[in-house]
Design a protein around this nucleic acid. Structure first.
Length: 956
RNA sequence: GCACGAAUAGCACAAUGGUUGUGCAAACGCAUGAUAAGCGUUCGGCUCUAGGUUCGAGUCCUAGUUCGUGCACCA
């Protein structure tokens, strides 16, 4: 194009295209090399702290998934914002490195399994595996733009961490909160270990449903009601969905208050079932109701102590009473196996039935199971059913779908198994824990009830695991008397060794290595010990971070309690709870002041993500295609308290918004290339109504987003910021002001006024972008002219800058009201112009002149008050208010009567807009139409304004 | 099964009990001096359903549906 006349076109090297794949990585390198995170801490080290304590992600995989990315990004948004607000806001990332899933994953690769390795070898492999995954996860996290102390993360396998954890255990032990006991616990036969409640999840499962007859023993005949005929065969009928637990059966339970019917059947003798369940039973089993004769009824409690014969084991099974028997399903006669159910265990204890648990750790029947010995529990369901059938004890067999407990790690069905385990007695400090919950701010507030009811109802915490990869339970057994040793001194000795040698020492060294040769047993005085072989539940590891990290790194993290824990809502039963319990047990306080939770990531249709459906979004792919900032923008755009959707469609839109933000910045930078704030700023009081309005809107924006960030409602920030950029700036202010920027003399006050506003906008926006899109913010900052950077803080990195503070002196209610009325006028004018355009009467709006006639004189006056700036508001060449006092010809019109006919007319909301062809000729420079074109002697094809401006341009 | 939460345009989010809105997307157009940009117009909603309170309900109440989360599960 011919550069005939000079213009002030935008000048900037800030690229329109983000090129995120390389540019973001460069930016991150810049932050690393310049130690921006460390500098931010240094700058704030004397300030109030805001410590967000990282919940450690589990190191079972080297790649993070989208939910983990979301979590880390949320944390980073919070810490970056708090740092900008002037807080000392360190972030120490952590990793959860022990535990069953890692051990299982490692063993999968070992030929010969567990037996092929010594515990120490196995542990070394687990360690390598975990640390390898750590590398991968760290790279993933850093690529997200998350800042923090990556050089010194915390890792639960760290020696000092382990020592601290042992000391937490010690404090709980000496407080009397830990004990060893025989209980029926959830057991994963696949993982060969006990599980805590938090590790159990329910999933649909198809079980065998069987009805089995328990024949009354001859010896108990006299205990039966009198109406039972002598010599009759009497059968209590139980229902169960786990045939494999029958070998462990020791009793049948009735409800003491239920009424039981004695039914004479044609082929099965006298059947005993609860009255309430009789119809259901008859129906399910397929008996003919007419063939049954009711002999009489008896209350459950009258039938206690009757002995029945176990259907296939040579022993009696006694009738006992229990309140846990329900009338919801089955027969009201409950098969009771104390070794395989918590309720059965308790009732068994009451009746002194003993505990029979004929299943080993791998789920294989032991010799106690008789003919089923050697069989895996789940493989023996059918053989047992077949056997019952053979014996004539089976009344009915079908399948039954219900939800059933599964191991949340390996996803396989669990069993209940009575074993000796270590427990933390939640009862011992439940009251304190509940009180501590109410000292915490839960966001959203429903989290409080969630954890409260969980803690209120939870049973003792089973903290022992029969595995190798973890921190050992630091307990010794006296060889002399067999009693266990768990004193503050003995535990401290373990901690001291671990701090130096790590917990491998437990497997490498003898007990004397810890206790010395003269540590007398408090019971018998013996000095020879063996070591406990169980390790601690990993939840105890991560539950100890408040001590092992917050307290242990007090210089850096200022100790427990910290300001915030921020995790997915599943952690109410996980980390939030384990941390709370250990913190309350040792310090009688919560380890956090605020707990913020988010929901789970789902696909765009609201479905859970799963590999089998193939709707999984990989954060890596998003970053490759769009960059980390777009992913971060996604995090900021959604209301994370509920399910959080993500998908292709959303990402495309987010990328658009990102581009809009980027181009907004590019416009600002381009038009500020020649602006020196020190010399060129125009005082606020001298700005036009339009310019001052944008400053006002900017102030409103800052006030709004500050509130949003303080409430952690980032999606509101996202909306506000986007609306400001699109509605206030791009389609309104930028569009209007372009002409002034490009056309007026470089140093003219009109142009400097706009630049004054643009500079303010830039200074604010670039800072508002920091928490969510730090790469973009930094990119903008690095392309900001030196003079403008100097005008604020001239920080090396924008991440070191302060968050803008809303400034009331920029608030202007008058202008707010004014433009609230005038902007709709502009919209109406746009519609009228569009009519003319649709009829091909005009192309650009500057080809038009508009006449405005208002029903309301006040509004006419208001609009007319914009004076000669009125045409620019509509981006037309001339605009007149025809019914405002004194408006005649003063608004860019030529004062003549309009000779041409209107090319479009529109009446709307009390405003009539008439569109005419613009008066005069097109100015060769500013492209507006003017009757003054040609009036200048030097510049013969331009308008008067251009002619006036041109001499002020430097000749090139 | 119980509890809690949610449901507004294709998508993301708004709306002190008072005319359902913003952006994106889509369609059409303008422009070509923010240019792999920009602007305009248009389209798009029985605010999940059914009742109720109210002068007036997206909003409050009741019941239900769907989704989600948590808890409990049948021995």
């Amino acid at each position: 194009m011919t550069e005939k006349y000079p213009l002030n076109l935008p000048q900037t090297d800030f690229p329109m295209k983000a090129n995120s794949a390389t540019r973001e990585v460069e930016t991150q390198k810049f932050w690393d090399e310049n130690k921006v995170y460390e500098k931010s801490l240094e700058k704030r080290k004397a300030s109030d702290k805001f410590v967000l304590h990282d919940g450690p992600p589990y190191l079972s995989s080297a790649k993070i998934h989208i939910g983990t990315a979301l979590n880390k990004i949320l944390k980073d948004i919070v810490t970056k914002y708090k740092a900008q607000k002037g807080f000392y806001a360190p972030y120490v990332p952590g990793y959860d490195s022990h535990g069953l899933p890692i051990e299982t994953a490692v063993l999968k690769e070992v030929k010969g399994g567990r037996a092929a390795l010594t515990p120490v070898e196995l542990r070394r492999r687990c360690r390598d595996f975990a640390l390898g995954n750590l590398k991968g996860q760290e790279a993933n996290f850093r690529r997200l733009g998350v800042w923090g102390n990556w050089a010194e993360p915390y890792i639960t396998l760290d020696k000092k961490f382990e020592a601290a954890q042992i000391r937490v255990f010690g404090k709980m032990a000496t407080a009397g909160y830990l004990y060893k006991g025989l209980k029926s616990v959830s057991w994963c036969p696949n993982c060969e270990t006990a599980l805590a409640e938090a590790e159990v999840e329910y999933a649909d499962h198809v079980s065998n449903s069987i009805y089995v007859k328990f024949n009354v023993d001859e010896g108990s005949r006299d205990k039966l009601p009198a109406f039972v005929p002598a010599g009759a065969e009497v059968n209590f009928v139980i229902w169960t969905t786990t045939p494999w637990t029958l070998p462990a059966n020791l009793a049948v339970a009735l409800h003491p208050e239920f009424e039981y019917q004695f039914l004479q059947s044609p082929n099965d003798g006298v059947l005993v079932v609860a009255t309430q369940l009789k119809d259901d039973f008859v129906n399910k089993v397929g008996l003919d109701p007419a063939s049954l004769k009711l002999l009489g009824t008896a209350q459950g409690k009258t039938l206690e102590f009757i002995l029945t014969r176990h259907p296939f084991m040579d022993r009696p099974s006694m009738v006992i009473l229990g309140e846990h028997v329900t009338a919801e399903a089955g027969t009201g006669v409950v098969h009771t196996a104390p070794g395989h159910g918590p309720e059965d265990f308790e009732i068994g204890h009451k009746y002194k039935l003993g505990v029979l648990s004929p299943v080993d750790g791998r789920g294989i029947f032991t010799a106690e199971a008789g003919k089923f010995a050697g069989e895996r529990f789940d493989k023996s369901n059918m053989p047992i059913v077949e056997y019952l059938k053979e014996l004539g004890k089976l009344m009915h067999h079908s399948t039954y779908s219900h939800s059933y407990p599964h191991c949340w790690r390996c996803k396989k069905p669990l069993i209940f198994r009575a074993t000796e385990q270590w427990f933390a007695s939640v009862d011992g400090f439940r009251k304190e824990a509940l009180a501590a919950i109410d000292t915490v701010q839960w966001i959203p507030a429903s989290g409080r009830n969630r954890i409260f009811t969980m803690v209120e109802k939870r049973n003792d915490w089973c903290i022992s695991r029969q595995r190798a990869w973890g921190v050992p339970i630091p307990v010794f057994y006296c060889k002399g008397c067999g009693k266990y040793l768990m004193s503050s001194q003995s535990i401290e000795r373990v901690a001291a060794v671990f701090a130096v040698e790590g917990s491998d020492a437990w497997w490498e060294q003898e007990a004397s290595h810890f206790l010395g040769s003269n540590f007398p047993c408090p019971t018998c005085g013996g000095t020879e010990y063996t070591k406990e072989t169980d390790i601690m539940d990993v939840w105890f590891d991560s539950g100890s971070t408040h001590s092992a990290v917050l307290d242990a790194r007090e210089d850096e993290l200022r100790g427990s309690p910290c300001e915030m824990y921020l995790e997915g809502s599943d952690q109410h039963r996980g980390w939030f709870q384990s941390s709370l319990l250990t913190s309350v047990a040792t310090h009688n306080r919560a380890p956090y002041k605020t707990v913020l939770t988010h929901g789970f990531v789902v696909d765009e249709t609201g479905k859970k993500m799963s590999k089998s459906i193939g709707n999984v979004v990989d954060p890596d792919d998003v970053i490759k295609q769009y960059g980390a900032d777009v992913l971060r923008l996604w995090v900021a755009s959604v209301n994370y308290t509920d399910d959080i959707p993500i998908g292709k469609n959303m990402l495309v839109q987010l990328a658009e918004v990102y581009r809009k933000l980027r181009n907004t910045a590019r416009y600002l930078l381009g038009n500020l290339s020649d602006f020196d704030p020190e010399k060129d700023r125009v005082p606020l009081s001298e700005l036009s109504k339009l310019d001052a309005f944008i400053v006002h809107r900017l102030h409103e924006l800052v006030a709004g987003v500050t509130e949003d960030f303080d409430r952690y409602e980032f999606f509101k920030y996202y909306q506000l910021l986007q609306n400001f950029c699109v509605v206030d700036l791009s389609s309104f202010y930028f569009d209007i002001v372009k002409d002034r920027l490009y056309v007026t003399a470089p140093k003219s006050k009109e142009r400097r006024s706009v630049q004054t506003v643009l500079e303010q906008v830039l200074q604010v926006i670039v800072r508002l972008l920091v928490p969510v899109t730090p790469h973009l913010a930094e990119d903008i900052w690095q392309f900001t002219p030196e003079k403008i950077r100097k005008a604020s803080t001239n920080d090396l990195s924008v991440l070191l800058s302060d968050f803008p503070v809303p400034d009331m002196k920029h608030h202007n209610q008058f202008l707010d009201d004014f433009w609230t009325e005038v902007i709709p006028v502009r919209n109406t004018v746009n519609k009228a112009l569009e009519q003319a355009r649709a009829e091909k009467k005009i192309g650009k709006s500057v080809e038009a002149k508009v006449l405005l006639h208002f029903d309301k004189p006040e509004l006419a006056e208001k609009v007319a008050s914009l004076g000669n700036t009125l045409p620019s508001i509509f981006i037309v060449s001339q605009a007149e208010v025809t019914n405002a006092p004194g408006s005649n010809g003063s608004n860019g019109g030529n004062g003549k009567e309009h000779s041409e006919a209107p090319i479009a007319e529109l009446t709307e909301n009390g405003l009539k807009v008439t569109v005419l062809k613009a008066d005069g000729e097109k100015c060769a420079r500013c492209w507006k139409y003017s009757t003054k074109v040609g009036s200048d002697k030097t510049y013969t094809d331009v308008c008067d304004e251009c002619a006036e401006a041109l001499p002020q341009f430097d000749r090139k």
